[in-house]
């Protein structure tokens, strides 16, 4: 018995339509009633996808840490000890990430792979804790050096003012300079006391610590800048008193 093809086509089409409709309905129902579990995320059950995702996150973190290292090594305002401390901290984080990457790349179980990827965030907190802490430390170190520069020259500034007969308001300017420099030292000291709390294990409380350190250092920066303005005014007054031409006069 041989059925002509032309008589079978309508039946095949109807069956295909019914099957397609059923499939769409099933999918729609599934999407509506059983949302994808967060653990499945964008990779679903694809282990290679999870590993590739983790490697990409590790790569961007290592790149950011290496950028930091480049900036610290190029920072001529820091002492070699200060540079070494920050670069060492960043290199420790890079080594940890590379170890984690080695573990991730060998995973054969997608659940374990997802756990490794999670650790990129929770163990290291590179963007939210590590890098801010390192950049803040560099800022703190530089401000410390500037503050010390002022302190080491305070007596010389005072002697020069007295030698010139304390012309104009140089005494008041000097007193303000000393006040600004002293308070800047206090602000930097307060920030230094908070740095030990700025570690990944303390996240998310690190947000408050970070904010406070930033406030302290910004204040110190502003005060040291004011001290510099005082110094510039003192220099102008001393030059005027001794008859030395000053820029703009």
């Amino acid at each position: 018995m041989k059925l002509p093809i032309r008589r079978l086509i309508p039946g095949i089409a109807l069956a295909a339509a019914l099957a397609g409709g059923l499939l769409l309905t099933t999918n729609a129902l599934a999407a509506h009633t059983t949302p994808a579990a967060p653990a499945d995320g964008i990779c679903g059950k694809n282990l290679a996808c999870v590993i590739a995702f983790g490697n990409a996150r590790i790569a961007e973190r290592i790149a950011a840490l290496q950028k930091l290292i480049g900036r610290i090594n190029a920072n001529t305002h820091l002492t070699s000890t200060q540079q070494a401390a920050i670069v060492g901290s960043a290199n420790t984080a890079i080594a940890g990430l590379q170890t984690l990457q080695g573990t991730l790349d060998k995973e054969t179980n997608i659940t374990n792979a997802r756990s490794d990827v999670k650790n990129i965030y929770v163990q290291f907190r590179i963007f939210v804790v590590q890098l801010p802490a390192d950049y803040l430390q560099a800022y703190d170190d530089h401000l410390t050096n500037v503050q010390q520069k002022f302190v080491s020259k305070e007596s010389e500034i005072q002697q020069d003012i007295q030698k010139a007969g304390s012309p104009g308001n140089t005494t008041q300017l000097y007193n303000d300079l000393v006040t600004q420099v002293t308070d800047a030292g206090n602000q930097i000291g307060a920030a230094n006391g908070l740095f030990p709390n700025l570690v990944p294990a303390n996240y998310p409380n690190t947000d408050g610590t970070k904010t406070q350190i930033r406030t302290d250092l910004r204040t110190a920066h502003s005060e040291l800048h004011q001290a510099w303005q005082d110094l510039k005014s003192i220099i102008t007054a001393l030059k005027t008193a001794s008859g030395t031409p000053t820029p703009g006069s």
């Binding site: 530089h142 020259k153 500034i157 008193a241 001794s242």
Partner: peptide, 29 residues
């Protein structure tokens, strides 16, 4: 006394370089 302010001027010039770079360090931090 006439005061030689070269030392203080050098200090001020050095601080100028400090504050120039501190601005970008503050942004990063």
């Amino acid at each position: 006394n006439p005061v030689a302010v070269q030392d203080l001027q050098s200090l001020s010039d050095s601080l100028s370089a400090d504050f120039s770079d501190l601005s970008s360090e503050q942004t990063n931090a």
